[in-house]
């Protein structure tokens, strides 16, 4: 991996207003550039806001249709990851994230695991993705996973086995769980555990780019963070305001972590495939 500086743009987009939100992205890209960032990561559905409901159809875009040109034009010296609703040529709508570098969209991830339970209604509006891929950007191999994707550890495992040195987790996770006596929200403390365990067990950088603000009365509690390959928190954003936070990611940290704990090297993919194939045949066919 090439050493690089990452910025997390913890923003509060306006629900359904993609023009205003595009402006907000351009401002944060400029802020990140001024902070010396090589890459800036926005949260899930950063271009649209989260609880869109029927606004999905109006806020969705064709990423190759011209609307994103002002953003794409900014990516000569800074790579951008952001979230949007992908209006496909078949007129389906997918929760998506794009990796844009050197004036090109190099990769689009479609959220695989939509959330159809609790306070969520994604299955009504979106079609889930059916691939988990990495992207070879100029800093090395990375992957993007969107919120609920990460609650299925298999997605992160596939990314790591595929060689991603950085997993960019982008999220809009409503704050809930103020009871029970914890020092932080139940929903946030689960993310902390998840990020730390993934960073440690997959011995890579784990990014959590999260929303801030309120939508329809629901609070998004921020706390975006970057963890190093030993589970160490490199930077953590506030729980109550929009901001850009920055961390430096080094190949040296990956090298040292993987010498100390060579979990990645020792992964037995042949065994995993064989056993999963057996489980699939016994239980799913």
């Amino acid at each position: 991996m090439r050493d690089f500086r990452i910025g997390l743009a913890q923003i509060n987009p306006r629900l359904g207003d993609i023009e205003a939100n595009l402006e907000m992205h351009l401002e944060y890209i400029e802020t990140a550039r001024n902070a010396g960032c090589d890459l800036v990561v926005f949260p899930e559905l950063s271009l649209t806001g989260y609880f869109l409901r029927d606004l999905v159809y109006d806020a969705a875009i064709d990423p190759y249709g011209g609307f994103l040109d002002p953003l794409i034009a900014e990516t000569g010296d800074i790579t951008v990851i952001f979230g949007f609703v992908h209006h496909t040529p078949e007129h389906t709508f997918k929760s998506a994230a794009a990796y844009v570098e050197d004036g090109m969209i190099l990769h689009i991830h479609h959220k695989v695991y939509l959330v159809p339970y609790g306070l969520f209604d994604e299955g009504r509006y979106h079609v889930g993705g059916d691939t988990i891929r990495t992207v070879d950007g100029k800093f090395g191999r990375q992957s993007i996973l969107i919120c609920e994707d990460l609650w299925h550890p298999t997605t992160a495992a596939i990314s790591a086995i595929d060689g991603a040195d950085v997993i960019h987790g982008i999220s809009c996770s409503p704050g809930r769980g103020v009871a029970g006596g914890g020092a932080e929200l139940g929903s946030i403390s689960t993310w902390r555990d998840l990020n730390k365990i993934y960073a440690q067990l997959f011995t890579g950088y784990q990014v959590f780019s999260h929303r801030i603000g309120y939508e329809d009365g629901v609070n998004f509690p921020g706390g975006s963070e970057v963890l190093g390959p030993e589970g160490d928190v490199l930077v953590r954003a506030s729980a109550d305001r929009e901001e850009l936070v920055v961390a430096d990611l080094t190949d040296s940290a990956l090298r040292r972590a993987r010498i100390k704990v060579p979990l990645r090297r020792d992964e037995n993919l042949e065994l995993v495939l064989r056993e999963l194939q057996r489980v699939f045949e016994e239980r799913y066919v």
Partner: peptide, 13 residues
């Protein structure tokens, strides 16, 4: 136990 609030967090929200 479940009903016991973190009142500081709740106040902020």
């Amino acid at each position: 136990a479940g009903l016991k609030l973190d009142t500081g967090l709740a106040k902020g929200i």
